[in-house]
């Protein structure tokens, strides 16, 4: 796991600027727009996805599962990269796509912000719920015992203190050092989250919408998990489930993601991480198993 490359704090010294580093590295030094094969491929994927459109699979007379075009584009995008015959989408294109994506996040954020601005008084009215739901993210710590039962040791601290996206990785690396077991844990969550996170969360949201009788605004606020792509994937099914409430849902989703971004990181530093360590010290002697992490062998 040690070979995983993640922008670390030495590059810049500020957690908040991880997006900037990635964007600059990938975009400024190259001419990413020139890679027409990448953009044409995306264009074709989008047309295919929009033409297929939303598919509803009824499970019973009240409950149905919605599969949206956004799912097709993620899965097709990944499939195009992995498919051997498709030679024009390789590692280089993936790097450009990743850098470009860091810029396109801005457009997504701008659209959500416009909805937030439009509904600003509603946001103030819902202030308590919006702020307190950020504490709901602490629920990740409940996964710690399971990680211990599966045989993780200190990796579990890195794995379960937060959702493990870029800012969280930086916090853990900053605190425990690049080669620590805690950092290996958060890297693992980062990599797996990158590959399956968006797809998983869109299904999770679809099922939650069908089976949990929660307030529409609660679903909207929860979709701001602190990752732009997961936020995007989570909003889709929520918008589809509550037609006529688009602006409110976008407003809450956008604002809650913004809160996760500004406030969430401090919750991780000052509450989640210390709490995870306390839990670990308390639980590890009780339920810890033999470590399943491989002894450091020659890589």
């Amino acid at each position: 796991m040690g070979f995983v490359t993640i922008p670390n704090k030495d590059d810049d010294g500020h957690i908040e600027h991880i997006y900037r580093e990635k964007t600059d590295k990938r975009i400024l030094k190259k001419n990413p727009w020139r890679d027409y094969r990448l953009h044409v491929t995306v264009f074709v994927l989008v047309i295919i996805a929009e033409l297929i459109g939303t598919i509803e699979i009824p499970l019973s007379k009240d409950i149905s599962i919605t599969i949206m075009p956004l799912i097709y584009t993620i899965i097709l995008g990944l499939a195009f990269y992995l498919a051997k015959p498709i030679k024009w989408i390789q590692r280089k294109q993936a790097r450009i796509a990743e850098g470009a994506m860091m810029l396109f996040i801005g457009v997504l954020i701008a659209k959500l912000a416009v909805s937030s601005g439009q509904s600003i008084s509603l946001i103030f009215d819902m202030g308590p719920a919006l702020i307190l739901q950020e504490l709901g993210h602490l629920a990740t710590i409940l996964v710690l015992p399971i990680a211990l039962l599966l045989g993780f040791k200190k990796e579990a601290i890195g794995m379960t203190n937060s959702i493990g996206r870029e800012p969280n990785v930086a916090v853990v690396v900053d605190k425990f050092g690049f080669d620590s077991p805690e950092s290996r844990g958060v890297f693992a969550i980062f990599i797996i989250g990158t590959v399956i996170g968006t797809i998983f969360i869109s299904f999770l949201v679809t099922f939650s919408l069908s089976f949990l009788p929660l307030h529409p605004y609660a679903f909207a606020m929860a979709s701001g998990v602190g990752s732009a792509s997961m936020n995007a994937a989570a909003i889709g099914p929520t918008l589809a489930a509550f037609p006529g409430m688009e602006t409110q849902i976008e407003a809450f989703a956008g604002f809650s993601n913004l809160l996760s971004f500004c406030v969430g990181i401090y919750i991780v530093i000052f509450v989640a991480l210390p709490l995870t360590e306390k839990m670990y010290n308390w639980l590890e002697p009780k339920i810890g198993r033999d470590s399943i992490m491989p002894k450091k062998e020659d890589e």
């Binding site: 990448l38 491929t41 995306v42 994927l45 989008v46 996805a49 929009e50 949206m68 075009p69 956004l70 584009t73 993620i74 899965i75 097709l76 995008g77 990944l78 195009f80 990269y81 992995l82 989408i89 294109q93 993936a94 790097r95 796509a97 990743e98 470009a100 994506m101 396109f104 996040i105 457009v107 997504l108 659209k111 959500l112 909805s115 990158t194 590959v195 968006t198 792509s229 995007a232 994937a233 909003i235 889709g236 918008l239 688009e246 976008e250």
Partner: peptide, 17 residues
């Protein structure tokens, strides 16, 4: 919003490969 998200996630899909 979903039109933006659909295109955005196509780049994400290729990038995560």
């Amino acid at each position: 919003l979903l039109s933006i998200v659909t295109v955005f996630l196509a780049y994400v899909g290729i990038g995560m490969g």
